[in-house]
């Protein structure tokens, strides 16, 4: 600041007054144009050589190198015979997300972004009220929710997020890092057996007895551990001389009662989960 008060302001005012009369710098765009440097790299156009031929040889190197894959090329080959194309044909947004998934090199499960089934939230409300809507008791909330619903449906996670204030991503992260918490209902496999007269006569009765013994339940029913469903299917006369058996909907041939019992036991051992009593 100078000694004389107001001198600094006066000098500034003098500068702006001088600027008032100086030539202006604005470029009036549509009429005037700024000269573009020959080295300018922003042209969105294909260049021609001095003979008027397109310089582009359709080598696709630019499209391959483009980091965000916004170059999408199509054309004919050098002898003008085949149509050649680089780049996926989808819309840009789809391509971008697809590309992001591909680049990440791993499957990205994101149930947060898929539509979810609504569930009855009354049991969850009871659990949350008991846990005081406290996000710091998240493991307990999640375990009790799984006990109530069998697994953690997305709807319940969303509701927990809304009610406790914890972010969905936090809850999802907590749940996915716990071995015993699961987001989908445990997969149930099914063994089907036809009970028509032809199949029963061909040995279906013995198969049924072996199956019910191995599964510990009646034929139309589910084993106590929930791992295996015994279903009644209809052969529609498809397997003459052999009882019609399906495993997960796939018809099986030539199964003896012992083999079927073994199969059922193996399936039960493989798919049973500790979380379910």
């Amino acid at each position: 600041m100078s000694r004389i008060p107001g001198l600094g302001i006066a000098r500034g005012m003098a500068l702006t007054l001088r600027r008032l009369f100086q030539p202006k710098v604005t470029v009036q765009y549509p009429e005037e144009r700024y000269p573009v440097s020959p080295r300018h790299r922003g042209r969105l156009q294909l260049l021609y050589d001095e003979f008027g031929a397109l310089k582009c040889e359709t080598c696709f190197q630019c499209a391959q190198a483009c980091p965000i894959e916004c170059i999408d090329m199509g054309g004919t080959d050098t002898k003008d015979r085949f149509h050649v194309h680089w780049g996926p044909p989808e819309q840009y947004a789809e391509r971008r997300s697809e590309s992001a998934l591909r680049r990440s090199g791993r499957p990205v499960p994101d149930p947060a972004y898929t539509a979810f089934e609504p569930v009855d939230l009354a049991p969850l409300e009871a659990i949350l009220a008991a846990e005081d809507y406290d996000p710091r008791r998240m493991p307990a909330i999640l375990e009790r929710t799984q006990a109530a619903y069998g697994h953690l449906p997305v709807a319940t996670l969303k509701h927990i997020s809304h009610s406790t204030g914890a972010w969905y991503a936090e809850i999802y992260g907590t749940a996915s890092s716990c071995e015993h918490l699961r987001f989908e209902a445990p997969t149930t496999r099914a063994i089907g057996l036809c009970r028509c007269a032809a199949c029963t006569l061909a040995g279906g009765g013995r198969l049924r007895a072996a199956l019910e013994a191995a599964g510990g339940t009646e034929l139309p029913g589910t084993t106590p551990d929930g791992a295996l469903t015994l279903a009644a299917v209809d052969c529609h006369g498809a397997s003459p001389g052999d009882p019609y058996v399906t495993v997960d909907g796939v018809p099986q041939r030539g199964l003896s009662p012992e083999k079927l019992a073994e199969l059922a036991t193996a399936i039960r051992a493989a798919t049973a989960r500790p979380g379910r009593a």
């Binding site: 600041m1 100078s2 008060p5 107001g6 001198l7 600094g8 302001i9 000098r11 500034g12 500068l15 702006t16």
Partner: peptide
């Protein structure tokens, strides 16, 4: 330097 005279010693700015 000319543009700086607008602010450098401007009493309000300082």
């Amino acid at each position: 330097a000319a543009n700086q005279t607008l602010l450098n010693e401007n009493e309000i700015f300082v």
